[in-house]
Design a protein around this nucleic acid. Sequence first.
DNA 1: ATACATTTAATGTTATTACATAAATTTGCT
DNA 2: AGCAAATTTATGTAATAACATTAAATGTAT
Lengths: 153, 153
Amino acid sequence: MGIENDIKQRKFKSEHQKAGINLMFTVREMEHKHFQILKKFGVTPPQFNILRILRGQYPKATTVNDLIDRMIDKASNASRIVEKLRAKAMVERKTSELDRRAVDVAITQKGLELLRQIDVIEQEFYFGLEFLTVEEANQLNALLDKGRGSEIK
Amino acid sequence: MGIENDIKQRKFKSEHQKAGINLMFTVREMEHKHFQILKKFGVTPPQFNILRILRGQYPKATTVNDLIDRMIDKASNASRIVEKLRAKAMVERKTSELDRRAVDVAITQKGLELLRQIDVIEQEFYFGLEFLTVEEANQLNALLDKGRGSEIK
DNA sequence: ATACATTTAATGTTATTACATAAATTTGCT
DNA sequence: AGCAAATTTATGTAATAACATTAAATGTAT
């Protein structure tokens, strides 16, 4: 019986409220599973998020500010997360030459190798949505985009 | 262009991966807005979650264990969250008479009053999903339940 | 050129979370 | 009854997050 069963709540005030709670609950479970996977590789979800952004730009570098912009959770501590990754030699960091306030961050070969390993696992993980068909995942994306009001164009 | 624009990523490995990231991103935004609302009333999201569960049982009490079961995030620190609420006189706590290991938690009048105030705001908030019609919110619920593999029956 | 506002990143502080462990009680087995 | 296992809650600790503040560099207006 879906979310009603999962959190043992029978009645919701509206379909929107139910969807809101359903979203939170689903994401909590998803993140928990994801966290367990990443832990084996010694990275936290925000660290992983940053590595993925950096791979998307590779071999170009990305400033800390751009990272914050693109992160799933707009972390106020991007600096510290980058520092953690640097300590593990997953990224390199140097002050930008064009703007000496800015810091350029780039993923290293070691970082890329880590992501390749995690890719394999995630292929099977399906982000915890294994019960959805591709078509349904597509519908879900459309609804989420619309829910946030950013569906257009 | 939806999530691609929001996190400025062009390509995803699969519709499932895209849905996973889309979910995380949507919930982050939703929770952030929700957090801002709750903050004005002096409660955190987990505290609010517990108060709502307790209201659902009112006037019966609920054990800490039951709370953990029903919480959106299965917090390992339910005890401490309850203690925070008790310090604010939102809940009462006493050891169960049937099982002296267990602790019965019940919402107080003050807690109920707080929830009533927040209800009003949430009515308008729509859990951050204001762009969805009721029918779409319903579809979203069905997809989420199925995604978690708990849609049946 | 100078002064002031803005941008960018780092850091200090406090609260919260995850995880492991402890303590008290109950349950089940013989 | 007696003893080990399981259950329920609380707590210690380390990592992380939110938020405010600081410091350095750049942009802008006069």
